[in-house]
Design a protein around this nucleic acid. Structure first.
Lengths: 252, 252
DNA sequence: GTGTTTATCGTCAAGCAGACGACTATGATC
DNA sequence: GATCATAGTCGTCTGCTTGACGATAAACAC
């Protein structure tokens, strides 16, 4: 088939980001307020058009840096830097998902440690970390009493898919460490699991499990009391990416 | 931002299909021979452009029907029909993946029972079930002595990702039944696992595991001797989609 | 009948998970 | 400084699941 642009319909391709973090014991996603129609004034996921010479992962990393200042952690480089985990999530292409034109959005999932206040072009009021339960409830009032409008476009579905991916993936991988600072304690890691899954875990069994899994955690030698109580050993993420046997999510 | 087509670069969007089945104890993928440049004469995955009014899943289901005659099993309809399992796999958008133009391909994964001979527009010589190891080796000779050329475009990567998805997903879901006919025996299901994972499983432990997992298998009452030996009970897939605890893939 | 093939049931030991007791080491409070 | 609250860490015990494997059952081929 020769190059014939009339042979296929043109699409706009965007990347949208589900950036998750754990703040105050709650799983939160980054939301930005839309400045233009459609859905003007409503909250949405950060994202933007893929440029003509850009790979999808590059576009996602660029948007992530623009919105949060985070560098994406290239998974092909095993060196543990401070970058966020970034992976492709899914692609959304309903013909009516954007009323203006035909847009296919390649959603990406980013996991980041707790960050300073978000920025969106320097305007803090137009970006916030929102608890995912608040974003996913169709209507009602948020914790601060502000009425909650549904997310723009199909972004509620995308957030839901991203949260589900994160919830299942920390079961059988060491990805939960992506929510932690470079050095962290077993208790901090446990609170990540508790926030993402929304359950309480037994501290003793959790400690036995994570310290007993080879390659999951590497002690750095230091200790900290930043959580109060007895000083806790500090660890960094080990090289293992797959947990076998997996961490079991409690039922019900 | 008003609708300004010059504000974003136009993309072509395609769907490509990784259609897997188990034939003669080997995991096979459907490959079609390309009739036009680029990569003319080389094997590739079936696929095509997404139409202007089509959802991505619709486009994938349409391509699947065109290439194999299979109807996609809509996961929102729990009725067990004879359709194939179809799910989105990942999206590939390297700027240079198609030398003609900027193409973003939304790959889908389909799992089907063993089928009669494939067809590609009625021409059997242009479609075949190829063992995935054969497709994935970069060069060399296939089982029939025919020299093996790498798949067109980035399709080897897509097949690799699809196979890995299938291998991991049958661990913790009942998806392996998608490779089986509507009624099947425990031994047939075990041979699916063995072919997909490329390992031998203990028949006794496998039998205990699958029959002991509630909702996985439902006995139909019938028996069959089509595999030889003692008659085996026939089952159909139960309603359970998640296996807990999962089926463990042997190491090494 | 004998052998072969496949299916199915049972047994046993090792390992892991969940429940939970006990102890340790810090900071906060009186 | 004693006491308390908080968080971390080490053990123990019980039940369940797994992996290895013996034994039996029911068909077909000869």
């Amino acid at each position: 088939m020769p190059y014939d642009p009339s042979a296929f319909p043109p699409f706009a391709v965007t990347v949208d980001l589900v950036v998750l973090t754990v703040r105050r014991h709650a799983l939160c996603a980054l939301a930005v307020r839309r400045g233009e129609p459609p859905f003007q004034g409503r909250w949405a996921l950060p994202g933007g058009f893929v440029r003509a010479d850009e790979d999808l992962a590059q576009a996602a990393a660029r948007e992530l840096a623009e919105e949060t200042g985070l560098r994406a952690h290239d998974p092909s480089v095993p060196a543990q830097d401070n970058g966020a985990h970034l992976e492709q999530l899914a692609t959304y292409g309903d013909p009516k998902r954007d009323p203006r034109m035909r847009v296919v959005s390649v959603a990406h999932l980013a996991l980041a440690p707790d960050l300073p206040a978000p920025r969106a072009g320097g305007d803090a009021s137009n970006a916030r970390w929102a608890p995912v339960e608040e974003l996913l409830q169709q209507t009602g009032y948020g914790r601060d009493g502000e009425p909650v409008a549904p997310l723009a476009f199909d972004h509620a579905q995308i957030v839901s898919d991203g949260v589900e991916r994160a919830r299942s993936k920390i079961e059988y991988s060491s990805l939960a460490t992506a929510f932690c600072p470079p050095q962290f304690t077993v208790g901090e890691l446990r609170r990540v699991y508790e926030a993402v899954w929304g359950v309480a875990l037994d501290p003793r069994n959790f400690h036995r499990k994570v310290t007993g899994t080879p390659g999951f955690l590497v002690p750095t030698g230091g200790t900290t009391t930043r959580q109060g109580g007895r000083p806790a050993q500090l660890f960094r993420a080990g090289g293992a990416t797959l947990l076998n046997p997996p961490m079991l999510r409690p039922e019900v």
